[in-house]
Design a protein around this nucleic acid. Structure first.
Length: 599
RNA sequence: GGUUCAGUAGCUCAGCUGGAUAGAGCAACGGCCUUCUAAGCCGUAGGUCGCAGGUUCGAAUCCUGCCUGAAUCACCA
C-alpha cells in the first residue's frame, strides 16, 4: 500500500536520474534529487528543485528545468504538463492520475505493511507515586505513552505497555504517619472521597505539620539543619520506613490498606483517560533487584568500592561523573533498582526496544543507565531509549505538588466534560438521544479537547497550561476534528437512506481542486505514521489529522455531495468522504481519541 | 561553573533531513445558515523567526559566539 502511494514520486526520482544521464551524461547522486509537494500559490502538484542539479547540467536553472520537464513529460505516466518558476520545476499530475491514486487507496482496504518485520517493544509510562493523586504532568505522560504504544502497534510491532508503580519509600510513610496521627481511623468510603485524593490529603497534612514543627524549632533558636534532624514527625516517618523494611505486620498492613485506596483512585483516573497496561510492576517487589548485578560488576572490575563500603562507577571517560550504585550500608538507590528492573524486563520479554516515557528532568539518569548497562556487556542496552518529554508549566511557573500548586487530573477531566456538556446542550443537536448516550458523547468530546490539546505539541518541548483560559473547543482542537468526523458520518447515513451505495468508482471523472487536494493529503497517511514512530512524536499525527479535517471542511463547504446529479461524481464524493472519515478516525485512534458518530 | 534543551504574530503552537512571498488556532474586526451538522466556511489586520557573524545559488532550519529561560550535575525518586 505504501509502495503504491509513493510510487509516483519514486518514479519521478528514477526518471530524473535517467534524464541526467541521457541529457548530460552525468551520474547523479540521489541525495540531490529533491521532490516535494508544490506550494499552494503555484501551479502544479509536485515540485523538483533543480538548483542541486545545475552541476550536472552546466546550464541555467530555467534551461535545466525545461530539459528535465520535457523528459519527464514523455517518460512519466500521470504527468500532464509542467511549469518552470525560477529554479523550480513544477509538475502537474493529471486528473485521472489523482483519481487513480484515490481508487488505489479505496480498494486497498486494511492492508498494513508499514514495517515488514515487527519487533517486540516495551513502553513504560505513567509510573506514579502512591502518595498523591495524578496531575496534569501525569496526564501528559500517560497520553504520550499510550499514543506511542498505539503508533508502534500500527507499525506492526508487538507492543507491551508497562507501568512501574512507586509504592514504597519515605513519601508513603509520611502519608501513613499523618493518617495514624490525624486520620481517626477514617476511610475514603467514610468521607466519600476518591482513594488517591484521600491519601494525598494526608501527605499534604504531613508536609504542613512538618513545616510548622520546623518553624517552631527554628523559633527556639535551632538552625534549619538542626531542626530537620530533631523533627519528631520526620523521625516518625523514618521509623515507619524501617519497620516496613523489617516486615512489621502492623506497618505493612497499613501500607497495603492505604495503597489499595490509592489504586482504586488511580484506576478510576486511568479509565477516564482511557489508558491501560499489559503489566504493572511494583517497586516494592523490584527494589531489591539490581544488587546482584552491581556485585557482578564489582567482580568484573567495572565498578569499585570506596573505603566506606559504597559502590561507584566512574563515567568520567564518557565525560560524565562518578555515580553511586549502592550505599555504604548496602541499600539500593534509584539506579540500582533501575538496573535490576531493566535486566528483569529483558528476561521477561526479550525486547528489541524499550521506551521509558519519563520527563526530561531525568535525561541524565537515563543516559547513565544505558551507559552502565552497556559497560556491563548487555548488548540489548542499545535498544533502550528514554522518551523524554517536557514539563507542563502554569502561568505562575512550575507545578509544585508539595505546595498544592497543581492542576489535578480528575478535576481537569471533569471540567472538560462539563464544558462539553454545556456547549452541546446549548447547540441542542442531540435531542433524540437518551441521557446515557448523551453523556457518552460529552465524555468523548471533553476528553478529545484535553488529549488533543496536550498531544498536538511536540513532546520534547515544555508547554503552557493556563487554567483560567479553559481549553478551546473551536479551531485547532480535538472537537473540531470530531465535528468533521460526525459531519461525514451524517452524510454517509443520509446516503444510505437514499440508497446510494458505492460499489465501484468511475475512472472517468474530473476532480476539482479540493478533491485532488484531499487525495494528496489522504495518501500521506502512512508516511505520517512512520514519521511519528521514527521521531517518537504523536504531534505529527495530531497536526496531520487537523490538516485533513480542515481540508475536508473546505471541500464540504464548497461542493455538494449528495446533491450532485452525476451519479459517478456523487459516488466518488461519497467514497472520498467515507475514506477521509476512516483516516481521521485511524489518526485520532493513534492518539487515543475516540470519535462520536454525532455531535 | 559544566552538560543538555528551548527562544517564531498580543497569547498558545506548526514549520520534515536547508528551498519559492514563514503558517494555523485563540483574541480583534468584517462577511456567509429557507440548501448534506455554523463546534463550520471566507476575508482584514497582526512578524527584525532572541542578537551578531559564518557556510551557499538559497538559512526560521546547519556552524560559531553572545543574550534570555528551563532542566540537570544528590548516599531523593
Amino acid at each position: 500500500m505504501l509502495s503504491d502511494c509513493i510510487r509516483m514520486e519514486k518514479t519521478i526520482e528514477n526518471n530524473v536520474i535517467r534524464a541526467l544521464k541521457v541529457l548530460y551524461g552525468s551520474e547523479a547522486d540521489t541525495s540531490n534529487i529533491q521532490v516535494q509537494p508544490t506550494r499552494k500559490e503555484f501551479e502544479g502538484d509536485i515540485t523538483l528543485v533543480v538548483f542541486p542539479l545545475l552541476k550536472y547540467s552546466g546550464k541555467s536553472p530555467e534551461d535545466t528545468a525545461n530539459d528535465l520537464g520535457n523528459y519527464l513529460l514523455k517518460s512519466t505516466p500521470g504527468i500532464s504538463t509542467f511549469y518552470v518558476v525560477k529554479g523550480f520545476l513544477n509538475l502537474q499530475v493529471s486528473n485521472s492520475a489523482w483519481l487513480g491514486e484515490f481508487i488505489k487507496l479505496w480498494t486497498a482496504g486494511e492492508t498494513n505493511d508499514l514495517y515488514k518485520k515487527g519487533q517486540t517493544i516495551l513502553v513504560e509510562y505513567s509510573s506514579p507515586n502512591t502518595n498523591k493523586p495524578l496531575h496534569l504532568g501525569h496526564i501528559r505522560n500517560n497520553l504520550l505513552g499510550f499514543s506511542l504504544s498505539r503508533i508502534l502497534t500500527e507499525c506492526g510491532h508487538r507492543v507491551f505497555k508497562t507501568n512501574i508503580v512507586n509504592d514504597r519509600g519515605i513519601h508513603i510513610c509520611k502519608s501513613m504517619l499523618a493518617w495514624k496521627l490525624f486520620g481517626q481511623g477514617k476511610t475514603p468510603a467514610d468521607t466519600g472521597m476518591k482513594g488517591d485524593h484521600f491519601v494525598g490529603q494526608f501527605y499534604v497534612e504531613f508536609e504542613t505539620a512538618y513545616k510548622k514543627e520546623i518553624n517552631e524549632l527554628i523559633q527556639k533558636g535551632m538552625t534549619a539543619e538542626e531542626a530537620a534532624e530533631s523533627s519528631e514527625l520526620m523521625a516518625g516517618a523514618r521509623d515507619l520506613l524501617r519497620k516496613w523494611e523489617a516486615g512489621d505486620r502492623e506497618t505493612v498492613g497499613l501500607w497495603m490498606k492505604m495503597n489499595s485506596w490509592v489504586y482504586e483512585g488511580f484506576n478510576i483516573t486511568y479509565e477516564a483517560l482511557g489508558v491501560d497496561f499489559d503489566k504493572i510492576y511494583y517497586e516494592s517487589e523490584t527494589y531489591m533487584l539490581g544488587r546482584e548485578i552491581v556485585e557482578a560488576g564489582l567482580q568484573k572490575g567495572i565498578f569499585y568500592r570506596k573505603e566506606d563500603g559504597s559502590v561507584w562507577v566512574n563515567l568520567s571517560a564518557d565525560s560524565l561523573d562518578e555515580k553511586l550504585l549502592l550505599r555504604a550500608d548496602g541499600t539500593a538507590v534509584y539506579m540500582t533498582q533501575d538496573l535490576g528492573t531493566a535486566v528483569e524486563r529483558y528476561n521477561d520479554y526479550k525486547f528489541d526496544h524499550q521506551y521509558y516515557v519519563v520527563g526530561n528532568e531525568q535525561n541524565y539518569h537515563f543516559q547513565v543507565l544505558k551507559l552502565i548497562l552497556k559497560k556491563l556487556g548487555y548488548e540489548w542496552a542499545e535498544g533502550i531509549h528514554h522518551f523524554s518529554y517536557g514539563m507542563v508549566n502554569l502561568p505562575e511557573g512550575k507545578m509544585k505538588s508539595r505546595e498544592g500548586k497543581v492542576v489535578d487530573a480528575d478535576d481537569l477531566i471533569d471540567n472538560m466534560i462539563h464544558t462539553a456538556r454545556e456547549m452541546a446542550e446549548e447547540l441542542g443537536k442531540l435531542h433524540d438521544y437518551g441521557d446515557e448516550e448523551k453523556e457518552a458523547i460529552y465524555r468523548k468530546i471533553g476528553l478529545a479537547a484535553l488529549k488533543y490539546f496536550i498531544l498536538k505539541v511536540d513532546p520534547r518541548k515544555n508547554m503552557m497550561f493556563n487554567p483560567r483560559e479553559s481549553i478551546d473547543f473551536n479551531g485547532n482542537t480535538g472537537p473540531f476534528i470530531q465535528y468533521t468526523y460526525a459531519r461525514i458520518k451524517s452524510v454517509l447515513r443520509l446516503a444510505q437512506d437514499k440508497g446510494y451505495s458505492v460499489i465501484e468508482i468511475s475512472t472517468d471523472l474530473v476532480l476539482n481542486e479540493k478533491e485532488s487536494d484531499l487525495v494528496k493529503l489522504l495518501r500521506k497517511y502512512e508516511s505520517v505514521v512512520k514519521e511519528a514512530a521514527q521521531s517518537l512524536n504523536p504531534s505529527v499525527i495530531a497536526n496531520y489529522a487537523y490538516e485533513l479535517a480542515r481540508e475536508y471542511n473546505q471541500f464540504y463547504h464548497d461542493h455538494t455531495i449528495l446533491g450532485e446529479h452525476d451519479p459517478g461524481l456523487r459516488n466518488f464524493r461519497i467514497a472520498l468522504s467515507e475514506y477521509t472519515g476512516k483516516i481521521i478516525n485511524k489518526s485520532m485512534c493513534l492518539l487515543g481519541i475516540e470519535m462520536p458518530e454525532r455531535m
